[in-house]
Amino acid sequence: MSFPISLTINGVRRDVELEDPRVTLLDLLRERLHLTGTKKGCDRGQCGACTVLVDGRRINSCLALAVSHDGADVLTIEGVARGDQLHPVQAAFIAHDGLQCGFCTPGQIMSAIGLINEDQAGDDPERVRECMSGNLCRCGAYAGITDAVLEAQQNLTAANQRRSA
Rank of each mutant, 00 (worst) to 15 (best):
M1G: 05
S6F: 02
S6A: 09
L7Y: 12
T8L: 00
T8A: 00
I9H: 10
V12Y: 07
R13M: 11
R14F: 00
E19D: 14
P21F: 01
V23L: 13
V23H: 13
T24I: 05
T24Y: 11
L25I: 00
L26E: 08
L26R: 10
D27Y: 14
L28I: 06
L28V: 08
L28Y: 15
R30D: 08
E31C: 06
R32I: 06
L33M: 04
L35M: 13
G37L: 02
T38W: 02
K39P: 00
C42D: 13
C42Y: 05
R44Y: 12
G45I: 14
G45E: 15
Q46T: 11
G48D: 14
A49T: 03
C50P: 03
T51C: 06
L53D: 12
L53M: 13
V54M: 03
V54T: 05
D55H: 13
G56H: 08
R57T: 01
C62D: 03
L63P: 10
A64R: 05
L65G: 04
L65W: 05
A66D: 11
A72E: 14
D73W: 00
D73M: 00
L75E: 13
T76A: 09
G79Y: 07
A81P: 06
G83L: 02
G83M: 04
D84W: 14
Q85R: 13
Q85V: 15
H87C: 07
Q90W: 11
Q90D: 08
F93R: 03
I94L: 07
I94M: 04
G98P: 03
L99K: 01
C101R: 00
C101F: 11
C104V: 06
T105E: 09
T105H: 01
P106N: 00
Q108G: 02
I109W: 05
M110R: 08
S111C: 05
S111T: 09
A112H: 12
I113T: 04
L115G: 08
A121E: 12
A121S: 11
D124R: 04
D124W: 05
D124Y: 09
D124Q: 10
P125G: 09
P125I: 03
E126Q: 05
R127L: 10
R127H: 03
M132T: 12
L136K: 00
C139R: 06
A141L: 12
A143Y: 14
G144V: 13
I145Y: 08
T146K: 08
D147H: 04
A148Y: 14
V149A: 11
V149C: 09
L150E: 07
Q153G: 04
Q153K: 00
N155G: 07
L156T: 05
N160A: 15
N160V: 12
N160H: 15
Q161Y: 02
Q161A: 10
R162D: 15
S164N: 12
A165D: 12
